[in-house]
Computed example of a mutant assay.
Amino acid sequence: MTDPEPTGSGRHETEQERYDRNWHDLQQELRITQTGTQLLAGFLLTLPFQNRFGTLSPAQTTIYLGLVVLAAAVSILALAPVAAHRMLFRRHRIGDLVSMSNRVLIICLVASSILFSGTVLLIFDVVLGLPLGWVVGVVIFLATAALWIGVPLRLRLTSRGGPAGGTLD
Rank of each mutant, 00 (worst) to 15 (best):
L130F: 07
N102W: 07
V98R: 04
V136I: 15
Q34N: 09
I123E: 03
E29T: 12
H85T: 09
V138Q: 07
E29V: 09
Q60S: 10
L115A: 11
R103I: 06
R91V: 07
P81H: 03
F124T: 01
F124R: 01
V69F: 12
G36W: 05
A83E: 07
F116A: 10
G66Q: 01
T119F: 10
I123A: 13
D96S: 13
T33G: 02
I123R: 02
L45R: 06
T119G: 10
S57A: 04
V138R: 08
A73P: 00
L132E: 05
L40S: 02
G133A: 07
C108V: 07
L147D: 03
G137I: 07
V104H: 00
W134G: 01
S117A: 14
T55Q: 15
S112G: 13
L40K: 02
A71K: 03
G129Y: 12
R93K: 15
R86D: 08
A145R: 04
L130K: 08
C108R: 02
Y64G: 01
V126Q: 04
L67T: 06
R52Q: 11
L130T: 07
A145P: 01
R93T: 05
R93D: 09
I63N: 04
L65D: 08
T119Q: 05
V139I: 15
T46Q: 08
I140D: 00
L56D: 09
S113C: 06
R91C: 07
V120R: 03
I114C: 14
L47W: 07
N51T: 14
Q50A: 14
L67N: 05
T55A: 15
Q34H: 12
W134C: 06
T61G: 14
A145C: 12
I107L: 12
M100T: 11
L132W: 11
F53K: 05
G129V: 11
A111D: 01
L122Q: 00
L88D: 12
V69R: 04
